[in-house]
Write a protein that binds this DNA or RNA. Structure first.
Lengths: 233, 233
DNA sequence: CTATAATCAATTGTTGACAATCGACCCGAT
DNA sequence: ATCGGGTCGATTGTCAACAATTGATTATAG
């Protein structure tokens, strides 16, 4: 029931398709951070003109996945702890707002959808398939944000998620143990479904802040380990 | 000491200049909401090629000031209470985060800058020049956000501010009386300067939420007034 | 040998021509 | 009179050639 709509989607424009293709390669880690992008090369690979590629790259730059140095080069965005910190702090703020709005406006259909995606996360966690768990995790957040009825928030969040995935694959931020992950999400889901706006916002905020903490902690570990290797040793 | 840097700024690229020109016209209300934009016409006016205009329009679309309907048209973004609501809720969330970070990281130089822009706001409020007050107001918020040291936050906020200005000129959201406005900002400034992160975040949040309340209240008034005119009357 | 300036190839920036698509208009059928 | 289909002008989408800029390389002077 969606396939028929796809014809009038904007995704048939060549520059969007090119952007989608390049985005996939960046987010999936095929193109590493700081990887240089040559307009001509991309144009050749995707069999479109340079102008089309240019248009695609500008879009990806607006999404934060690509950087441009005028007259000089395009490259894949850098990955670093600071970048990840920016993403998670932003994410916490945005998802807290979304959770609050979602709790305030939840309809029965919304609640059903929420239960559905949570059940999928539960199933994935039971299965133990990392990739499936990550997808289900993001999906649940996406649904909550979608429930906010806040167009700009939805759009910003989607961009953010793509950047998070990119950083994740390169910074190597591992998922928490599945039990905690599941209970965090269950609590968030329940708060939203029960219309407890303050609690939902708090949980969304906390959930993401916890990720930042872990990230920074791991980063410090790495640093001291590195210092240990070339320092006293 | 900044002028010398301007040569290597990216603003000398034609598409950026075109975007700046069009943006100014949109934000200043010269181009009304839903105003149709013709690539050829703009290209003629600004004396650049259509491709360059296209690039500029894509950038403005990413900033939320312009909408595109594929194969059909470009137009200036719509202005409505809902749009304004989206902007202010987002702004509250973003500025709350920024204020918290700013309070945590404020350096002496930051504090000095903060005092400076607040003094300018005070002076403008004393003078009574609406335009100057609005500029000083935005400037103070910009400084606080800049103090956060959060690149993405700064960028998002700048985009947001432009959209807010656009909506303001068309929705006709009037500024609060100058006394309250000044005291709100003084409290925020002090909280940030004193490093009281929680209080700074709360004030930023509240300050913006209050605007939303006023906006929605005015909107309801208008609606009931309109209903009154064509209803019982 | 180093520092500086000129040269050049590689790459991005800009343009105008050509193709694809859309919406309005017109026409005929019912 | 209204509805459906086709035509046409206007507008956007795509492309390939041309111009401008950069960073690396080489030559040169000290």
């Amino acid at each position: 029931m969606v396939a028929l709509e796809s014809l009038k989607s904007q995704d048939r424009l060549l520059d969007r398709q090119a952007a989608n293709s390049i985005r996939r390669q960046i987010v999936n880690g095929i193109m590493p951070p700081r990887h240089r992008l040559l307009e001509t090369e991309l144009a050749g690979n995707l069999e479109v003109s340079r102008g089309t590629i240019r248009s695609a790259l500008m879009q990806l730059a607006a999404e934060g996945l690509v950087c441009q140095v005028a007259f000089t080069k395009w490259e894949v965005a850098p990955a670093s702890v600071h970048e990840a910190w920016e993403l998670y702090t932003l994410r916490a703020a945005l998802e807290a707002l979304a959770a609050r709005l979602a709790a305030e406006r939840a309809t029965p259909a919304d609640r059903a959808e929420l239960e559905k995606v949570f059940a999928e996360l539960e199933k994935a966690a039971g299965g133990g398939d990392r990739e499936a768990i990550i997808d289900a995790d993001f999906n649940l957040h996406r649904v909550v944000v979608g429930m906010s009825g806040h167009g700009r928030l939805i759009q910003q969040h989607e961009k953010l998620i793509q950047q998070v995935r990119f950083q994740m694959t390169h910074i190597g931020l591992t998922a928490r143990d599945y039990h905690h992950l599941l209970e965090d999400h269950r609590a968030l889901k329940d708060a939203v479904a029960n219309g407890d706006a303050d609690e939902a916002a708090r949980l969304a905020q906390t959930h993401n802040s916890a990720e930042v903490e872990r990230l920074l902690a791991e980063s410090v570990e790495e640093k001291s380990a590195a210092a240990g290797r070339k320092g006293p040793g």
